[in-house]
Design a binder for these strands. Structure first.
Lengths: 131, 131
DNA sequence: TTAAACCCTAAAGTGTACTAGAGGGTCAAA
DNA sequence: TTTGACCCTCTAGTACACTTTAGGGTTTAA
C-alpha cells in the first residue's frame, strides 16, 4: 500500500506519516523499485491506535512506549512490562475519572438548560461541578 | 491570595498562571496597592478544572469554551449552549471509549504477563487489542 | 540595612507536533 | 508526449503551550 492510499485510509496526511516514521512511531516500510514506500496492511491498525491514544492526551513519546510493550520469556523484561502497564493503567483510570466528572457537569447543564422556567440561569461548568 | 501561594496550591508555576491570564483562561485578578495580583479563592477550582481538562486532551482554546458556558434566560443562547454541550458530550464519550479500549488491552497484557508458562510471549498492545 | 524571597513587565527561547515549500523523479491516461 | 496525479528528500516555517531571561520594584526576617 502506497503512502497516499494509507493516508486516506487512516485520515492523516502524507507528511504526518513520514513524520511519524522519522520519530520511530511506525517502522520504515519496504520500498518499491521506484523508491516509493510500500506499507503492510497492519500499518492501518498501528496508526489508528496512535490516533486513539493522541485523542486522549498521550504524547507521541508515550505512544511510542505503549507500542513498544513486548512481553518475552525474559523475567526481567516481564517485570518491567508489568510495572509499566500498571503505571499506564493508573494514568488511564485517572483520565477516565476526570472525563467522567466533566461529563457529569456537562450533562447537568445539558439537562437543566431549557428545562423549564429559569432553573438554569447563569449555570456554568464550574457551578455544575459543585454538586 | 498572591500568585506564589496560588501556584503552590494548584501545582502550576507562576509564569503559567500569568500565561493563562494572558490567554483569557482566568480573569485578571484585583491588584494590591503595590501592583501584586490578588486572586479570589475560586481561582483554585478554575485552575483545577483547567488541569483536568488538559490531562484528557482538551486544548486551552477548548477549555476556554467550556469555561465560557453560561445558560441564561435568552432562548437563543440556551439553544446554543445545548448544542455545544451535546457536541462536547459526544467528544467525551468518544474519549472514554478510546481510553476503555486502551485500558482493556493494557489489562490483558498486565494479567497475562508472568501469569504462567509462556502464555504472554511477544504480546504487544496491538495484539492485545485484537480480541 | 541588607539579603533572601517575593512580585512586576516585556520579550526571547524551547519542545512538540506538525505543515508547507523547493526542487525534483515516476506513472498512467489522453 | 505531455499533463496531472502521484511519489521522493531536505529544509524551513507554524501553532501551541509553556519557560527563560533581562531588568526591575517590594517585603520581611536577621
Amino acid at each position: 500500500m502506497k503512502i497516499g492510499q494509507l493516508a486516506k485510509t487512516v485520515d492523516l496526511d502524507i507528511q504526518t506519516l513520514r513524520y511519524y516514521e522519522s520519530q520511530g512511531l511506525i517502522n520504515e516500510p519496504q520500498r518499491l523499485e521506484n523508491g516509493y514506500r510500500d506499507y503492510p496492511q497492519n500499518s492501518v491498525e498501528r496508526l489508528r491506535f496512535i490516533k486513539k491514544a493522541k485523542l486522549v492526551g498521550f504524547t507521541l513519546k508515550e505512544i511510542k512506549d505503549l507500542l513498544a510493550i513486548q512481553v518475552t520469556k525474559d523475567e526481567h523484561t516481564c517485570q518491567e512490562v508489568k510495572n509499566f502497564t500498571q503505571i499506564k493503567l493508573d494514568e488511564i483510570n485517572q483520565k477516565i475519572n476526570e472525563l467522567s466528572e466533566i461529563k457529569a457537569a456537562l450533562q447537568k447543564i445539558h439537562t437543566s438548560c431549557c428545562g423549564g422556567e429559569e432553573t438554569a440561569a447563569h449555570c456554568s461548568i464550574l457551578q455544575a461541578l459543585e454538586n
